[in-house]
Structure formats: structure tokens, C-alpha cells
Computed example of a mutant assay.
Amino acid sequence: MTSPTSPRRPGDPAPPSEADRARALLLPVSEPEGTQDLDGDGVPAVLPGRPEPAQPPTRLATPAEESGLTCWNCSFGNREDRIFCRNCGAELRNPPTLQLPPPPRRSLKKPLLIAVAVLACLALVAGIVAAVRAFSGGDALVPAGLVVAPPEQAEATREDPQHPVRNAFDGVTDSWWGPGRAGEGKGEAVQARYVRPVHLRAIRIHPGVSTRPADKEKQARPREIRVIVTDGQGKGSEKRYRLEDGKPLLAEIDVPEARQVQVVLESAYGATGGRQVAICEIELFRAPA
């Protein structure tokens, strides 16, 4: 049912039409600025560019030089009445105290290990020397400052055909000389000669058939001997020596022009049971040339 409308009075505006009411619902939209076509050629108008004026270069203000206090942190100069550095802000009156680390404690572990290693090496060397001496029956090294002087000729009053006198001067201790008769061999002698005079300084005699302790009892060993050294003029000097059983004898004989050396047997150890006296090596030493 349609509501009744009031009658229109003279002078009243005409009621809006349907098109007017629809147009009133639309929101007006304005043209964007700068895109209006003023000339009607389809190209929006553009304002001409405006040059920017040149700007003067910017300079940083340099602080005035000050003296009196030098900053401990940045070495910058400051007036004496300043409390803080004007450059880095550090406090000028109370610079921090440098705290040095405590000195490192010296460890005794490393020196102790070195000392132990040195002692171990010395003990090893001493053990090797002792083993060599035990095996050889004595010190087989050349005395300090001397050189070996092997004789040019060797003779003996008697010799065992299987153990001739040359074995006593062959430079090895596993061969030996024997007089070829059982007993102490008193008076039997070995003689070494030189064609040219030699300044002899020492003699070393290795008793027995070898320097190995296991071979000690195989033959008799010299106990008392005489050593006679004769020079080029026929003048001789004689000394008597007593050997310890199974140990070598090292004796000094200082003859400047020696031509002949004799080792004469006087008594022996273990000269029983058909054993003869044995000497495995006689070494003569001279002064260096």
C-alpha cells in the first residue's frame, strides 16, 4: 500500500528525479595536481626546473690549542683547570694505575727432568764402560796423549807352535802367546824390537788366553814380571811389576830412544794341571810425533 503524498504547493521546488538522486550518491574525484592538460594536446603541463644556488663548503670548527695537561689516554692538550679531556672525555686528574700481572712462577719440573735425563745418560755411559771392561778384563783404550807403537820385530825364548809370539802383538785379545811348556815359565821372555828408536811412554799387558772372564782359568796367568827397555846405545832400564790375577797391567816407561822391550816371566797364577802361562796381548805406546 502506497503512502499518500501531500499536495504540491505553488513555489515549492520540483522533487528530484531518479537520475538526480543517483548522481547525488557519487563522490566527486578531483584531477591530480600537475597532470592537467592545459593545452589540450594530451600532455600534462610541467613546471620549468629551478636551479639550486651553490652552497659554500662546510668546515668543521677546530678547537683552539690548549696546553698544560696532556691526556693520558689520547695525548690531547688540555688546560690545567679541566677535569675531563675535551677530546676523549677521560678523567685527567686520576689516570688509571697500570696493574702488572704477577711474575710467573718458575716451574722446577723441566729442570728436574733435564737433570734426571743427564744422570740417566751418565749412568748409561758408565754402564757401557763397565760392561766393556768386564768383557775385556780391563781398560782397552789408548792412554790419553799417546799412540800405539807396534814393534817391527817380535821374538820369544820359547813359543807354543799353536800360539806363537806374534799373537802377543797382533792387536786383538782373542789369541795368545805361550812358552809351550807347563808351569810358571820362570825366565821365559817375549822381546819386541824397533829398527828406528821410538820414544816409548807406556806398556800394557793383558794376561791369559783372552780378556773374557769366562776364559780366565783355561791357562795360567803371569803374576810377577820384569820389563827391560833398552835404548839405541845399549843402555837398559829394568822394572818389576806384580799383576792382579786376570787384570791387565798398565805401566809407565819413559824411554826417549827405545830400541828393544823385554817382558820376562817370574811367577804365575794357576800354573797347575799341565797349564802354561799365557799372554793374549802386549801393547806399547809412544809419544805423538
Rank of each mutant, 00 (worst) to 15 (best):
S75N: 07
P207M: 01
L122Y: 06
A54H: 03
V129I: 06
T62G: 04
A140E: 05
L25C: 10
R223A: 15
R105W: 10
L200P: 01
E52P: 01
I114Y: 08
G145D: 15
G270V: 08
Q162H: 08
E31K: 07
Y269N: 06
S6Y: 09
K110A: 15
T230R: 06
R82S: 03
Y269R: 06
R82Q: 08
D231Y: 05
V277H: 06
G185S: 06
K235Q: 14
D81S: 09
E52L: 15
G68V: 09
I203R: 00
I203K: 00
E238I: 14
A54E: 10
E152A: 09
P179F: 07
P51Y: 06
P150Q: 05
P16K: 03
V29Y: 02
V116Q: 00
P96Q: 13
R201I: 04
L60H: 03
N94M: 13
R259V: 15
C88M: 06
S17K: 09
L26A: 15
N73K: 01
P51S: 10
G11M: 09
P213L: 07
K239C: 03
S237C: 04
R86T: 08
L108V: 12
G180Y: 02
P32L: 15
R242N: 08
P101S: 06
V255N: 08
G145H: 09
P164K: 04
V46F: 14
E80M: 05
E65I: 05
L108S: 10
L124A: 15
V209M: 07
A123D: 05
L113M: 14
A14Q: 12
V129Y: 03
I253T: 14
I253L: 15
A189T: 01
E217F: 10
R166D: 10
L69N: 00
V43W: 13
I203T: 00
P111N: 01
L243A: 12
E91Y: 10
A182D: 13
G183L: 02
N167C: 00
C71V: 07
G180C: 03
K216L: 13
G77L: 07
C71H: 02
P207S: 01
I83C: 02
P161A: 06
P57S: 11
I114F: 12
T230S: 03
R196D: 06
E152W: 05
V255Y: 04
N167F: 10
D170Y: 03
G187A: 07
T5E: 15
K235R: 12
T62W: 03
R242V: 15
A54N: 02
K110E: 11
P28T: 13
D41N: 15
R86Y: 10
R133D: 01
